[in-house]
Structure formats: C-alpha cells, structure tokens
Design a protein around this nucleic acid. Sequence first.
DNA 1: GAGTGGTCTAGACCACAAT
DNA 2: TTGTGGTCTAGACCACTCG
Lengths: 235, 235
Amino acid sequence: MKSEEIANQLIEDIKQGNYLPGGKIPSEKELSDIFKASRMTVRKGIEMAINRGYLYSLHGKGTYVINEAEKIEIDLNDLQGFTKRALRLGKVPSSKVLVLSNRPSTTQLNQIFQADLEEIFYMERVRYMDSVPLAIEYAYIHPDYIGDISLKDVTSSLTDYIKSQGIPIKKIKKEMKAVIPTTEVMNSLELTSNTPVIRIDFYKYQDNGQMLEYAKVFYNQSLFKFVQYMEDDNL
Amino acid sequence: MKSEEIANQLIEDIKQGNYLPGGKIPSEKELSDIFKASRMTVRKGIEMAINRGYLYSLHGKGTYVINEAEKIEIDLNDLQGFTKRALRLGKVPSSKVLVLSNRPSTTQLNQIFQADLEEIFYMERVRYMDSVPLAIEYAYIHPDYIGDISLKDVTSSLTDYIKSQGIPIKKIKKEMKAVIPTTEVMNSLELTSNTPVIRIDFYKYQDNGQMLEYAKVFYNQSLFKFVQYMEDDNL
DNA sequence: GAGTGGTCTAGACCACAAT
DNA sequence: TTGTGGTCTAGACCACTCG
C-alpha cells in the first residue's frame, strides 16, 4: 500500500531526525514527486502520520512535526479538580459557557437518567488553560437538582455548585473512548486537522442511586497528555 | 463540506433508527447516487462516521451499524487483573506471545529507563478474551529483574512473574492517548477499518525508583469499552 | 501573486465475499 | 460472476498565508 509506505517513511524520517520537532516537512506537491504518487495518495500518507500523532497541518502554511515534549500533563484521576490544579501549575484556567438552558428531554436522555423527564438542564462549555482549549463539555443535569443557576455559578466548577446546593455526589462512572471529533468539536478545540481526541462520558450519581448529571467531554490531546499514577496496591 | 454532510446524515439516520444496530447501510455506490456525490466523497463521509464510532466496514460485505450494547466493560483501574477478572465474567482469557527475547537497547530506551543498558528484554503479545483480541502489548523489561524467563512464565501475567521473583512494583505511571493504529497493530487486533484505538503507555517502578518495565499497549475498542468507577472522595 | 493545504470528481483496477 | 469495499490516479477548484 503506497499511502502506508509514505506514512512509514515520514515517521521514520522524523524518528531519524531528518525532520525536526516543530519543523516543516516538504509540501504535498514536492512529496508527490519524491514518492512518485498522486497528491491524494500523499495526502493519505500524511493523514496517517497525523493520526498516529507525528504531524499536524496548517492550511496555507505547511505540515509540521509535533513536539511531544511541550505537552502539559493532565491527571485522569483528578479531572474534577481542574480549576485548582491549573492554578497550582501556574496556569490560568478559564471557561467559556456556550449554552446554558433548559431544553426538552429526549427518550435517549430519559433512558440514561432512568427517569421520565420533560425538561432537562443543558450546558455546553469550553475549558481553557492559558487560553488554550483543553476540553469541550456537553453536560445534561437532572432538573430537580439544579435549581436556579446562573452563568456566574458555572464558570468555575459545576460540581462545586451542585455540592453547594447540599447535594453530594456519591459515585461517578467514567467511560473512555478514542474518537475522531466532529467538526463542531474540532472548531471548539481549535484543531485544524483530523487528530484523534479522548472522549470521556461521565455518569454522576447521588447517594440514592439517582443520576445527577451525564456529561460527554472531548479532550484536546494535541497540547496535553493524560496520565494516571498508581501506588503500592493494584500491584 | 459534502463529506461531512454525508457523515452527519448517516449518523442522524442511525440515531433516528433508520439503520439499526448490527444492520447494514446502503452500499457506497448506492449512497453516491443518493447523495449525488462521487464515491470517494461518500467514502470520506463513511470514514468519518466510522471514526466517530457509529459504523464499521467489512471488505466485500458491506458497512454496518455498531452495536454499543454488546461491548464488554474493561475497568481501567484494574487492567493488571485482566486474567482473573476475565474468569469472573465467564470469559476465557488467553494470550499469544509473538516475540520474547533479549535485544540491544537504544538511546531512546535508555533515556526512558534512565540507565545505561546494553541489552533489554523485549516481549510482544496479544491478549484475547474468548478468542477476540483485546490488546496488543509491546513491553521492554529491565534485564536485571527478569532473570531466566521462559514462554510459559508470561502466558498468564508478566506482573505475577516479576512478583514471584521477589521484586515488588511500587509505582505505576500510565499515559493515555487516542490514536489511529498502524497496520501492524490493526492486524493484531483484527481491525478492518481505521477505527481509533486507545494507547496506554505503562511505566512501572520499583521501590528504589528504578524503572522495571516500560510497555505500550493498544486496546481494541470496537468490542470493548473502558470504564472507571470512583466513589465518595474525588467528589 | 505564488505557494500551501482542503475538497471533490470520474474513472480505473484490485481484493474479498457470496452464490 | 456479481457486488461489495480498498486503493490509486490526474486533474480541477477553493481557501488560506505571506510577501
């Protein structure tokens, strides 16, 4: 397969240091001469190397080598503590709330919440660290537990707000997936190429087993890396 | 963008129930008539829907809707306990060791191990559950801690073997990424299309801080889903 | 403007599955 | 053999960047 060979060659060149982190690779036109392949095939090869985490493209400028060393670590066991942790790292956390409203529930959502809701509270926001988008969050909250919320209440932490209402979160289930984002997600995360993102679905439950919140969150991994530490037990 | 619209329409049809989980969607040729687009453009649309986790293709057969409900849950906090947990679920775990040998170390590996090794122990294996490939593992082990190992010792658990040698693992760091796999990984996981996979890099340390093992593992998410439960604390 | 990547086309040939 | 998806081509036009 020609496109695969092109991808492998590009990656090999990167590993060999022929193309340096942050540097530019030859243009698609040049590469199609070098590899004696059509531009579409070259593009497929480049796309593969992008998806494998080695390159990124900028429209009208060129295709560049990713610099892994610059990425910021995010702890998966402490995604909730986003705001506080960012400050500890000397980063400026912020978020932009895109949507905050009640909307009609759907059968799909009622199934997730195991409830017969007419309306559901919906929030959409992007979280930034030093003005770089880290994640976009689509959250659905059980209306009985949200009360009168204002924009101000959610610019920091939604979980803090729910707790401040005297409602404890008892259990969280997370489900993780690797996906190629929709263009909507891509735009929010300011991604220019089809790089994969990490999707985590959060299911947050109250003491009595009632679901409080369901959220799907897409994490930008082009500038962050996601880690988890375990000690002693669990081997 | 035509291909994006095609992807969205396909996904919408799936959500609407026009195409059922496990069922087949129209052929690429039919879709290119329906959408009045070239087959290449239709393929791009299908590829997007695949990458977003809604479809999968079988060469010579057709393109099908993914059935999320059939996926098996894998607990991210207990990836080590793979063998035992599989049995509890009534599944038959197995693994196929592809490579098991000493090989010359590289500067890159010596940097990871923070050591000046000449040789390093290398293992490559695929893990199955009921003969379905769950993951492929590329492991590098510090030679001082491996001794005389045989194939028999690693068909179950490598961690158990290291422990049986009296060497405790004190700390594990995991790094998670979403990637599109290489064809080698694709073949090992028996994936037919470019679906994203979860890559986890494991860094396992001994009591004294010395690294014991570095492993990169690619998890097949077309038949499994990865979950994590948290209670009480951490909110 | 010239050069870059982004999208799309209409066709070709191949590899695989089913009958 | 027919129908499916998988790969590739040669060219076109567009959108963006930069001097």
